[in-house]
Nucleic acid binder design. Structure first.
Lengths: 210, 210
DNA sequence: GTCTATAATCAGATAGAC
DNA sequence: GTCTATCTGATTATAGAC
């Protein structure tokens, strides 16, 4: 037997996986550039360089395409979290995760966060892989948030949930888009500025106005 | 002459204006709920209770419809700014404007901020009324920001432009959407929480806060 | 001036050739 | 398995009746 069936299957599966990666990466970029509604399946197929019908052999619908892209990002975030030194203070790890996401956004690889009630939101909320990845990340981040509060690095009267949402929102902050349009700062400077406003706030500590 | 032409014209113009207001208000809400792409002209016409063709006698295109809604919000913001007591510190006025926008968002009356490069963005950037209103508000807010920095209430090493963008972004903060979904807080509590994270930041500092 | 009905276009999804 | 060609439905915009 020259070709063992398992070998052939494995090779084909590998190719298939590679192409799916290329597809999902393209979807990621187009989602970041245009958002879900404005991203067309034709554009995805054209950029990947395959026929639209071939796309549909990999993903049954446009919504699943987007969900796969979101899951990919979540898994990347999770992997990045795994790589952070455990001896770092929890606050430093939180900053690092948000900074990583901001850099991804500036690189055009961070799909928009589904804030407004789009058709996509319902799909994502029914997508078990997405929910699992999001839940896992949220649980870990919440643990870090509580730890940072215990260590006195995050303000304790803010509910952890509020801090978690704020970090998610800052990871996709449109301020980065505006600053990038101005072109006055490097990517690193923009990330530092937005991180600074996020953790330190806009106001001075002396102001006590409400 | 029983009916003076000017009177009839004025009355008709008044009716027309009233209907345009109803249209724009509906557009505002649908933009807030669904975003530009997902808002259909059919839906607008249906909610207003007129035929789609009648809509097109008021506004030549969907894009102009959205632009009118954005201009309406900007004019409302401007009017709100006019109504703020000038003796208030600049920081208090800035907080009040952002708080007003947040309440509008929670009430479903704040159309999304055109952050991602949508088709609408190009239209708005070519819409003179929109640019004029946005420019006027930005100039006034920047003046308040600089004043607050001079008074020591806003951190001086942050460029005013960065603070301005941050305030715009917070006025449409998706954190409000997430908190609202949880349903744990009143509108006022949510606004206070997000304002707090915006101006005070998430982190503690060496100096005591509040 | 408003509405019904329709044109024109575009996007998501699929059938069938190879 | 991939591509060309097509279907189906939705959406923007308009023509023509009243």
């Amino acid at each position: 037997m020259v070709n063992a069936p398992s070998t052939r299957t494995s090779f084909k599966e590998k190719m298939r996986q590679a192409r799916e990666d290329a597809i999902v990466q393209t979807v990621n970029r187009l989602l970041a550039e245009r958002g879900y509604e404005a991203m067309t399946v034709d554009a995805v197929a054209a950029e990947v360089g395959i026929a639209k019908a071939s796309l549909y052999t990999h993903f049954p619908s446009k919504e699943d395409l987007a969900a796969a892209a979101m899951v990919r990002v979540l898994l990347q975030v999770s992997a990045h979290m795994d790589g952070l030194a455990p001896e770092l203070p929890a606050l430093a790890r939180l900053r690092a995760v948000v900074a990583w996401a901001m850099h991804a956004k500036l690189a055009g690889q961070m799909p928009f966060l589904p804030s407004h009630n789009s058709a996509l939101r319902a799909t994502l909320m029914a997508h078990s892989d997405y929910l699992a990845a999001l839940g896992a990340i949220s649980a870990r981040l919440t643990g870090w948030i509580v730890a940072a509060q215990v260590q006195g690095h995050l303000r304790t009267h803010l509910p952890p949930q509020v801090i978690l949402y704020t970090l998610y929102a800052r990871a996709c902050d449109p301020v980065l888009d505006y600053l990038k349009l101005d072109g006055l700062y490097t990517d690193a400077q923009m990330v530092d500025l937005v991180l600074d406003t996020c953790f330190q706030g806009l106001g001075t500590s002396s102001e006590t106005l409400i």
